[in-house]
Nucleic acid binder design. Structure first.
Lengths: 236, 236
DNA sequence: GTGTGTAATTTGTTATAACAAATATCTGAC
DNA sequence: GTCAGATATTTGTTATAACAAATTACACAC
C-alpha cells in the first residue's frame, strides 16, 4: 500500500475532487487502518486484549485478514503479543517514553529545519491548527486539543518533505496513542510564546535553526502529563 | 517478537549457556527471519519477485504463514508490492537513499554519543570488528567487508542502549540490503584515520561529541558506491 | 464455604479450498 | 513466419476447517 495509497494527495490536483485514484483496499488493510486511527485517537486503552475471532466478527471479516491486520500492528509495535500470543494494547515503559522523546527530538527537529522550504499556504495551515489548539485550551476541550497537537506535529513533519522520516515519526506517535489522552493531565502549560508559535515564525523567516530548536523545546518541555501513565521500566 | 525475542541476552547470565529461553517460533516468524537476513546480506536482488505459492513451497510451509512473513517485510518496507499485488524486492530511489543517510546521521550519531557509557569489553569487540574489516580490505574480500561494516554500525548502535532507536536503524539497513553489496564499487576509501577508529578512540575517551561526529562523517562520506545502483527519483 | 477433577469452550496457528483476476500457453488462420 | 482468440494455469485474496494448548465452566466431594 503505502506509497501508492491515499496518504499523499500532494500534487496540485486539477481534476474535481470526486475523481480520486481507485484504491482497492483489501479487507486486512481496512481493518489495519481503522485500528490504527483508533489507537492514535486513544480509543484503545492499554492492556486491552484484542482476541482474533471476536475482532474478526466485529469487523465482519474472517480470521485471516483480521490476523494480518493485527500482526502488522504488532510488527510496528503499535500492538504487542502477550505470553499467550494474544494481541494486547501495550503499556509504555518509562524508558520507552523517554527514548521516543529523544528520537522525536532528532527527527522532528530535522523535519522542522527542512520545512522552511514550504510554501506560505502550508505554513498558514499549520498556524490555523495552532489557533484551534489555543481555542481548545481556552474552552478546556482537551480531548480535541490532544488530536490537534498530534496533527500539528505530523503536519509539520510532513512539510519537511522526508517521507521515510515522516513514517518513522508517525509510528512513534501511534505507539504513544494509548496514553496521549493524558497529555493535559498536568494542566495547560502557560508558555509565552508557545513553542508552536515560535516554529511558525521561524518557518516564515526561513530560519531553520530556530525552527529546529523550537520543536525540540516543545518536545522536551511538553508531555509531562504522560509520565504518570507509564509503567516503571523493567529491572534489566 | 522483538522485545521478548532472542535479540538481547543482555543481563549477565549465571545459567550455563545451553539453558536458553525456549523460543517457540512460529512458522511465519522463521520464514520472516530467514528472508530478513537474506535481504540484509544482499542475497535478494532488486526487482526479484517473491510469489506466494512458490515461496511457501520452497520453505515447506503453507501459504498462510508464508504470506504473513512476506507482508510483514512489506510493512517494514524491506519488501514492496507491485501493481499486481506481488511481493518484490524494491529498488531504492536516490531520494530514499539520501533520506536514509540523513536519518542515520541523526540516529546513529545519537547512539554513538550514548555508547560512551559502554563497558570496555564491548568497545574491544567493536575494535575487533574493525580489525577484521581492515583485513578484508587488505585481502580485497569485499563481500565479507560489507557484512562486517554492517555489523560494526549495528553493534555500535546497540551499545547506545536505546532499543527503539536500534530497531529503526536496523530497518533502515535492511532496506539498503539489496544494494549494499556494491558498497565498495568505488574502491576502498583511504581515509586516515578511518572514522571507525575515531569512533573507537572517542568511546575509550568518553568523548560523546567526538563519537557522534565520527559516525556522522563515516555515514556522510561513505557509501558512494551505492549511488550507481539507485533509481532516479520519480518526478513528483 | 474450598478445593479438585473433568468436560466444554476458546485461544492462536496452520493448512486447505474457493474465488476472481491476471498471466501464460496453445491452437489455428492467414 | 505473425497475429488473434480461446483455454489453462497461476496469481493474490479470503473463508473455512483442523489441530493442540490453554482457559473457563461446572459438578462433586469434603
Amino acid at each position: 500500500m503505502s506509497s501508492a495509497s491515499a496518504s499523499e494527495p500532494k500534487t496540485g490536483e486539477i481534476l474535481p475532487d470526486w475523481v480520486r485514484p481507485i484504491v482497492k483496499e483489501s479487507l486486512s488493510e481496512r481493518a489495519y487502518r481503522e485500528l490504527r486511527v483508533a489507537l492514535m485517537r486513544g480509543q484503545l486503552r492499554p492492556d486491552t486484549r484484542l482476541r482474533l475471532r471476536p475482532m474478526s466478527a466485529r469487523f465482519g471479516i474472517s480470521a485471516t485478514p483480521m490476523r494480518e491486520a493485527l500482526l502488522r500492528l504488532v510488527s510496528e509495535k503499535a500492538l504487542a503479543l502477550d505470553a499467550r500470543g494474544s494481541v494486547v494494547v501495550p503499556r509504555l515503559a518509562l524508558d520507552q517514553l523517554l527514548e521516543i522523546r529523544a528520537i522525536r527530538t532528532d527527527l522532528e527537529g530535522r523535519a522542522a529545519a527542512a520545512a522552511i522550504a514550504s510554501p506560505a499556504a502550508e505554513i498558514d495551515a499549520l498556524e490555523a491548527i495552532h489557533a484551534q489548539i489555543s481555542q481548545c485550551h481556552a474552552s478546556r476541550d482537551f480531548a480535541r486539543a490532544v488530536n490537534l497537537n498530534t496533527e500539528f506535529h505530523l503536519s509539520l513533519c510532513r512539510l519537511g518533505g522526508m517521507p521515510i522520516l515522516y513514517e518513522i515519526v508517525e509510528l512513534l506517535w501511534v505507539r504513544c496513542g494509548p496514553i496521549l489522552s493524558h497529555l493535559y493531565d498536568d494542566g495547560v502549560p502557560d508558555w509565552e510564546p508557545h513553542p508552536h508559535r515560535r516554529v511558525i515564525d521561524a518557518l516564515r523567516h526561513g530560519d531553520s535553526d530556530a525552527a529546529r530548536d523550537a520543536v525540540r523545546e516543545d518536545i522536551e518541555r511538553g508531555g509531562s502529563g504522560l509520565f504518570a501513565h507509564v509503567r516503571a521500566s523493567p529491572a534489566g
